[in-house]
Design a protein around this nucleic acid. Structure first.
Length: 430
RNA sequence: GGAGAGGUGGCGGAGUGGCUGAACGCGCCGGUUUCGAAAACCGGUUAACCGCAAGGUUACGGGAGUUCGAAUCUCCCCCUCUCCGCCA
């Protein structure tokens, strides 16, 4: 949610912000609704004041005849008050609905671009390994090693379903535990468990609704939604509260199962572990003071925590600054991490070999406004918090680069050193 | 799933149709007192929105309704608690 006052004062900022993000919103219509809403509001308030005054005087009247007359007089006022109220309320509802669609304008340091093709590579870490034998993709490797059963998954859960077994499931838990240890033990984040079944307000408050509603599973029986990330729980946890500045920044991390309908992706990445309906993810969220520089600092730090994990796993990756057309309505800025997945590499252009594994978002007040998440500053003023989030690790997607980069000629997979401690010291999967 | 109780300001807790945006207590802020503090005493202390201002409107879990007028009456929803049943 953007600030209506700010939109009123600097509409061009939001016109450009939406255009840059390829989002169509009619800012002029919003301004017009706003104008009409305020006029209607004032009209209603004037009439209501009149009615209130008249009603109050009735209470003081003693003479029953006089009272009767006064009641009748106010009775006629009632209808016009109700009318004016209805008009003002309707305008407000329309205005709010439109306002929810206005994207957060991208930050100035975000390159303008149409879509993912115009994203910018910021940095690279590690060199993709050269194999001196014919490599296999993670699907072939995993099936031969019997660490993933796709058929069973589909039989039970339909398309984009899978079952990890044996060392596959162990590997999955190992990366999650490594991710949690990095965040909790090494970086002081507080681990939290979150509800993955939430009310509509939590989805709207975190900005996943109304745009993107079709991506969430809806449990209609209870009118609850399955979350696609722990970001929802971690960010909405303090909704409606006024925190103390001294509590900030809040640093939370959670593992949760994530549910995504993947509507509109038919035919994309249909095979394997890349795009699935259900996965587990360790997510980091920071709720910070209302300070742009501080937000930027945390953004880089949070990116760094994810890099730490990939470096421990010795997986080559690159960092992408997403362009305006690819950062979604919520974000002021978004940086993705793409990890080297040998099976995606076309043999010529190295850029083809990287697949997205992480996404770090900086949202400023966008979610806080929707969630009414504020804090009282040292100066006594109440402000909206800034929120940020980033993946620490999402599995099984991360198993793709692990299995593929660590494969051996005989089809076995070496367990990354950083994970061995979580797998009883196991060194290879064969 | 069945039965019942309840949701009021930062907290506790009054309030069953107009004089209640809300008694009283606690807390908090300012002052008096004090070398300083505590105690005591005095004063202040809800928020959002519209408006240059004066002022006005709204809000007692949320929504709808009754009424000239609702924290107070009616209906629906949400949430919390207690008991019974069932259950990991």
């Amino acid at each position: 949610m953007i600030d209506l006052k700010d939109l009123r004062e600097t509409p061009d900022k939001y016109r450009k912000g939406a255009a840059d993000k390829n989002v169509r919103v009619d800012i002029d219509a919003i301004l017009d609704f706003d104008l009409r809403h305020r006029a209607a509001q004032q009209e209603f308030e004037r009439l209501r004041a009149e009615q209130n005054a008249a009603s109050q005087s009735i209470g003081k009247l003693k003479d029953p005849e006089e009272k009767k007359l006064a009641v009748a007089r106010v009775g006629t006022l009632k209808a016009s008050v109700k009318d004016a109220e209805e008009r003002a309320r309707q305008l407000e509802t329309d205005l709010q609905a439109l306002l929810l669609l206005v994207p957060q304008p991208a930050d100035l340091d975000v390159p303008v671009g149409r879509d993912a093709s115009e994203n910018v590579v910021v940095s690279k870490w590690g060199e993709p390994k050269k194999f001196n034998f014919k490599t296999q993709n993670h699907i072939e490797l995993a099936q031969k090693l019997k660490i993933v059963d796709f058929e069973a998954g589909v039989k039970l859960g339909g398309s984009r379903s899978y079952m990890l077994l044996g060392a596959g499931a162990e590997l999955h838990m190992a990366v999650i535990r490594l991710a949690l240890d990095i965040m909790v033990r090494e970086n002081g984040f507080t681990q939290v468990t979150v509800p993955v079944l939430v009310r509509e307000e939590a989805m709207q408050g975190t900005g996943f609704f109304p745009t993107g509603r079709e991506q969430a599973y809806h449990v209609s029986e209870d009118n609850l939604f399955l979350t696609g990330t722990a970001e929802v729980g971690l960010t909405a946890m303090h909704a409606g509260q006024t925190l103390e500045e001294s509590q900030l920044p809040l640093r939370y991390v959670a593992v949760s199962t994530c549910f995504r309908r993947e509507a509109g992706t038919y035919g994309k990445d249909t095979a394997g572990l890349y795009r699935v309906h259900l996965f587990d993810k360790v997510e980091q969220v920071v709720i910070a003071r209302n300070d742009i520089e501080e937000s930027k600092l945390w953004h880089r730090k949070m990116l760094g925590f994810a890099e730490t994990l990939l470096q421990r796993l010795e997986l080559p990756y690159r960092i992408i600054q997403c362009c305006t057309g690819d950062i979604g309505v919520k974000n002021a800025s978004m940086l993705d991490i793409e990890t080297w997945m040998p099976s995606r590499f076309d043999g010529k252009d190295p850029a083809t070999g990287y697949g997205e594994t992480h996404s770090a978002s900086r949202l400023y007040e966008f979610q806080s406004r929707r969630l009414n998440l504020r804090y009282k500053g040292a100066d006594g003023k109440v402000r909206y918090c800034h929120t940020l989030n980033n993946t620490v690790v999402a599995s099984p997607r991360i198993l793709i680069p692990i299995i593929e980069n660590y494969q051996n000629e005989d089809g076995s997979v070496t367990v990354p050193e950083a994970l061995r401690g979580y797998m009883g010291g196991r060194e290879t999967i064969s």
